[in-house]
């Protein structure tokens, strides 16, 4: 398990694409939105929670198909399935590696971009907290979507179509936490829902994703 985590992290760092690309994309979204919406601070502050969450969601989506597609192409999955490593655990570890290389950096970088969007300072801690708590669910749901589309040629677009509707609850609760935090309201309820989605996904989706992987590879 730990060997798999270390290997996936090494691969993400060495290929360069996985780690930096998501962050750069996140930055671009935060820069492009004011260019499109206009520079008025009030408007930007009001839409900042939504923009930052949607940016994080899309940045996450960008690297999802790498979770299993590369391992599928070079035969790693076929060797992994009969190996002593339980596939459910392997899926969870790969989702964790994806989160460590995309979700976590996004949560850390988000306050800088929030300043660009004039998000009130009272919202910053809640922005980091909501992303830190909510993005693991994005990685786990994404891993499930990637497992469904692993055998599909050019499955990237299909993956987005499958995964984005599943992101709706996380997006709603996550942006709500930031909005309430910025306005100085209590954030307990949406934050609890966000955490519940993450925990529920982490507990159940590895099984669904592992089943989907076995089915995709069966070919019989």
């Amino acid at each position: 398990m730990i060997a798999l985590l270390i290997r996936d992290l090494k691969l993400a760092f060495r290929s360069g694409g996985g780690f930096g690309l998501g962050l750069a994309f996140f930055l671009l979204v935060a820069v492009l939105v004011p260019l499109g919406v206009g520079p008025q601070g009030g408007t930007l502050a009001r839409i900042a929670p939504g923009i930052l969450w949607i940016g994080a969601l899309l940045a996450c989506l960008l690297s999802l198909d790498r979770i299993f597609a590369l391992d599928f192409e070079d035969g790693t999955l076929e060797i992994l399935i009969p190996s002593p490593l339980p596939l459910e655990g392997a899926v969870a570890v790969k989702a964790l590696a994806h989160w460590l290389t995309t979700g976590l950096p996004l949560a850390v970088a988000a306050p800088v971009l929030a300043v660009l969007l004039h998000l009130p300072a009272s919202g910053l801690p809640w922005l980091v907290a909501s992303l830190a708590i909510g993005t693991p669910a994005l990685s786990m749901i994404g891993a499930f979507g990637a497992a469904l589309t692993v055998g599909v040629k050019r499955g990237g677009l299909l993956l987005s179509l499958l995964v984005l509707p599943l992101y709706v609850p996380s997006l709603i609760f996550g942006a709500e936490v930031v909005r309430r935090g910025a306005e100085g309201m209590a954030v307990g309820t949406p934050l609890a829902f966000l955490a519940a989605i993450t925990l529920g996904s982490a507990a159940s989706l590895p099984f669904a994703a592992a089943a989907a992987l076995r089915m995709s590879l069966r070919q019989g």
Binding site: I2, A3, L4, R7, K10, L11, R14, S15, D71, E73, D74, G75, T76, E78, I79, L80, P82, S83, P84, L85
Partner: peptide, 28 residues
Amino acid sequence: IAYAAHADGIKATLSVAENLGFWAAVHG
């Protein structure tokens, strides 16, 4: 049973030792 097919599950960016070390660790 150990299975090997046309594709070897080798990662291009890892060294020979790292590739082997990973599969050794997976199999204890």
